[in-house]
Simulated assay, not measured.
Amino acid sequence: MTMSIRLSASFALLALVLSLADAYDPSPLQDICVGVAEPHNALFVNGMFCKNPSLATADDFLFSGLQVPRSTANPVGSTVTPVFAAQLPGLNTLGISMVRIDFGIGGLNPPHTHPRGTEILLVLEGTLYVGFVTSNQLNNTFFEKVLHPGDVFVFPIGMIHFQLNVGKTNAVAIAGLSSQNPGVITVANALFNAKPPISPEVLAKGFQVDEKLVETLQKKFWYYN
C-alpha cells in the first residue's frame, strides 16, 4: 500500500469516527434555547422553536411537582413522569432530561428502548429487578440486577431494557437521560399495535409462533406508559 493510499484510508477512518462522535445530541451553539410552541419570530432548533433569549425567564428552567406520587392504577402497574423539553422548555438543546417512575406492587415498566439517549437510574424506594439486552453484535447478552434504595444502574443508549417492582411495597425511581428528547419505543406496543398493523405472517415467522396468536395480540388493548 503506497503512502498516499495509507493517508487516504486514515483520513477516511478519521472522518467515520468523527461522524459517529456526532451521533448524539449536538452541542448547543447558544447559551439557552427555551422551547416554545408558537413559531412566530422564533428559530427552529433541535425539534423545537426557540424563544428569543431576551424574553426568557427563570420559570422557563423550572419544573415543579416531581416529588408527588403518581397513580399506578393501569395495566402495567407503573407510571412514568417525564421531564423532557416538552415539559421543561429550558432543557431544549441542552442534551439532558429526566423522569420519575412510580411502581405499584408488581408494577412493570415494560421492555423499551430510548433511541437517542443513555439512561442512568437511581432507586429511591422499594426493590426493582432491572435489566437490558445488548444487540446482535454481542449475541443479545442479558445484564440483570436487583436494585435497592441508593443503587444506580445504567442502560446504554438504544438497548432494550425494563424495570420490575419485585418488592412488597410500592417503588420509586428517578432516571436521567443523555438527551432532551430521548424518545421511547415500547417493544410490544411497537410490534403488535403498529398502525397500520404489521402483517401477522411477518410477526409469526419472526417470533416463530402461530399466526392466530399474533392476531390475538394485535387485538389487545396496549397501554402506553
Rank of each mutant, 00 (worst) to 15 (best):
112 H>G: 04
216 T>D: 14
148 H>P: 01
127 T>Y: 08
149 P>T: 08
68 V>M: 05
124 L>N: 12
216 T>V: 13
107 G>H: 12
147 L>W: 09
154 V>D: 03
116 R>A: 13
166 V>C: 08
141 T>N: 08
98 M>T: 01
187 V>I: 15
4 S>G: 06
16 L>D: 01
178 S>D: 11
91 L>W: 04
209 V>P: 00
76 V>P: 00
102 D>N: 07
169 T>G: 08
61 F>S: 04
110 P>H: 10
75 P>R: 14
61 F>Y: 08
169 T>D: 14
52 N>E: 11
88 L>D: 03
31 D>Q: 15
180 Q>V: 03
178 S>Y: 05
201 E>R: 12
190 A>H: 11
57 T>R: 06
84 F>T: 01
180 Q>T: 07
66 L>P: 00
32 I>V: 15
12 A>P: 00
99 V>S: 04
53 P>Y: 09
182 P>H: 06
167 G>T: 11
37 A>Q: 15
148 H>V: 12
112 H>N: 08
216 T>N: 14
65 G>P: 00
130 V>F: 11
89 P>N: 10
31 D>H: 12
9 A>F: 09
76 V>H: 13
10 S>G: 06
35 G>C: 09
172 V>N: 01
182 P>W: 06
76 V>F: 14
59 D>F: 05
207 F>W: 11
179 S>G: 06
142 F>C: 05
65 G>L: 09
60 D>L: 05
36 V>C: 01
201 E>W: 08
197 P>E: 08
19 S>G: 02
158 G>K: 02
175 A>C: 03
198 I>A: 01
46 N>G: 05
137 Q>R: 15
36 V>R: 00
204 A>L: 13
181 N>E: 13
131 G>S: 04
146 V>E: 09
65 G>T: 04
197 P>K: 12
146 V>L: 10
210 D>G: 07
34 V>H: 01
94 L>S: 07
11 F>W: 13
198 I>H: 02
190 A>P: 02
110 P>K: 13
159 M>P: 00
214 V>I: 15
92 N>L: 11
131 G>I: 04
221 F>K: 15
73 A>W: 04
72 T>P: 02
111 P>H: 08
177 L>M: 15
31 D>N: 13
96 I>S: 05
36 V>P: 00
5 I>P: 00
29 L>I: 14
66 L>R: 07
64 S>G: 06
24 Y>T: 09
160 I>E: 02
113 T>G: 03
139 N>H: 13
129 Y>K: 12
91 L>N: 01
209 V>D: 04
22 D>P: 00
82 P>L: 06
223 Y>A: 10
85 A>M: 10
35 G>L: 05
158 G>M: 02
190 A>N: 13
151 D>T: 04
222 W>K: 06
68 V>L: 13
10 S>Y: 08
195 K>R: 13
67 Q>K: 07
89 P>R: 08
166 V>T: 10
95 G>Y: 04
124 L>R: 10
164 L>A: 05
181 N>P: 00
206 G>R: 09
92 N>Y: 01
191 L>R: 05
38 E>D: 15
177 L>P: 00
10 S>L: 15
170 N>Y: 08
93 T>E: 05
153 F>G: 01
77 G>R: 03
5 I>K: 14
220 K>W: 06
192 F>K: 07
154 V>L: 11
90 G>S: 10
91 L>Q: 02
42 A>M: 10
157 I>Q: 09
17 V>Y: 07
27 S>M: 14
182 P>T: 07
147 L>F: 07
157 I>H: 01
156 P>Q: 06
